[in-house]
Nucleic acid binder design. Structure first.
Lengths: 229, 229
DNA sequence: ATTGCACTTATGTAGTACATATCGATGCGA
DNA sequence: TCGCATCGATATGTACTACATAAGTGCAAT
């Protein structure tokens, strides 16, 4: 524990922070729709009683999140944000803490298992053929790198078939951290594999049930799961 | 289709955008650790050949994401970012598109099912007792609102027991969107429930296996899953 | 009606000035 | 020598001004 156990509730909330919050309230609270215009910078500055500088800092943040779009004379309009834009900017393993990395590691495992919920609704013959091709290629692989590539290709193809772009992107962003944890913060090998192989999973996908698939995926990931505290 | 099929590859990349990117590269590429100091605003401005204003807009974004922390005379230091800070700012149902909302809806279903991967590693007696208390309370409930509250409480308690703060927070952020979709964009009731009840899930958690739990959760969520296209 | 040009306007960038908090040193007194 | 208060020095926070730049707007000419 630190010397001061619980003091310092004051957080230096700067003007830009406050303005950002007010603007987000303004944008989300009202019945605004994408495409609607919002007041000019100078008007906002005057209305909020701050300098244009502060307003611009707040707007700059919202722009980064994709909540607004600004053009030179047109002014600013609301846009529907890219909910993962914030995430992708900080998914670098070594700027995160070990605890966060571990949670992200677990997050991916959860996604892999839960996928089945969508997979059996969306599965297609082409998707399965693609998976089979990867499995076949995997059996002829020699180097470790090739094996890892196949591993990633297989699971990417699964997400592809699940038909949820958000989950797919999210998982892709998780991967670098996942690999980092496997590489540096666990004692077993990346490609240690459970009693259920990729080939088994494909077969379940073809002829089995969602229940069987989740069971299979749990078995497939068992080496990872056993490592959890 | 528009009149011009493929023109307009130019994206007005502003100075602040570029500086933000450069700073992120600078922060992530090097072997920096949380706590390390980064150059002063004026130094950055001079080094990058832009005004201090632009640098501050970029820094303001990184500060929002929790990547840096600044104090009055101390300067700026790297911090380990809160990976969900960006997300929570835009999880408002009505500023998202219907497609995004649907994907978030699915995302939660996937998490619910995949949870089992962690749940059986982390389950505790106290957690199960808490779940049982909720189930018991649920059986005596009268109004719809109370029923919904129990629903939320039950699933929150599950995430609590899973012991992954990131997933728990993430799920909590998903919920408003999930409820919105159920309320306005599906034709069945919120509390339509599958053939497996909360009580069944608790029993599986006590005496069953992860495989049985995922199966049970799939059944529990079946009304939602059947609605997916 | 379309093209071309000047004008207007809102954002983007630069620069200056000052406020504010905080670190560090200096000096005073016990 | 050890506090303790005071006083700069310094980096961020805020305000203000000025101008550049892109993009509508409207008018005029062909």
């Amino acid at each position: 524990m630190e010397a001061t156990p619980k003091i310092e509730p004051i957080i230096s909330t700067t003007m830009a922070d406050q303005v950002e919050e007010r603007l987000r309230e303004y944008i989300t609270h009202k019945a605004f729709r994408p495409g609607d215009a919002i007041p000019k910078e100078v008007e906002l500055a005057e209305a909020l009683g701050v300098s244009r500088n502060v307003v611009r800092e707040a707007l700059s943040r919202l722009r980064m999140l994709g909540m607004i779009d600004t053009k030179k004379r047109r002014g600013m309009i609301l846009t529907q944000p890219d909910i993962l834009s914030g995430l992708e900017r900080m998914m670098h393993p070594h700027i995160l803490g070990t605890d966060t990395r571990k949670q992200i590691f677990e997050f991916r495992l959860v996604l892999e298992v839960g996928q089945a919920a969508l997979l059996f609704v969306r599965k297609t013959d082409e998707g399965i053929q693609k998976l089979e091709a990867i499995v076949k290629q995997e059996s002829q692989v020699l180097t470790i790198q090739e094996k890892v590539d196949c591993e990633i290709a297989f699971h990417s193809a699964l997400y592809e078939m699940a038909g949820n772009e958000t989950i797919k992107r999210f998982q892709a962003m998780l991967m670098p951290v996942f690999e980092y944890v496997v590489e540096y913060e666990t004692d077993h090998d990346f490609h240690t594999v459970g009693s259920v192989t990729h080939r088994d999973l494909v077969n379940i996908l073809k002829n089995g049930t969602p229940e069987e698939f989740t069971s299979g995926m749990l078995k497939h990931l068992e080496p990872h799961l056993l490592r959890l505290a």
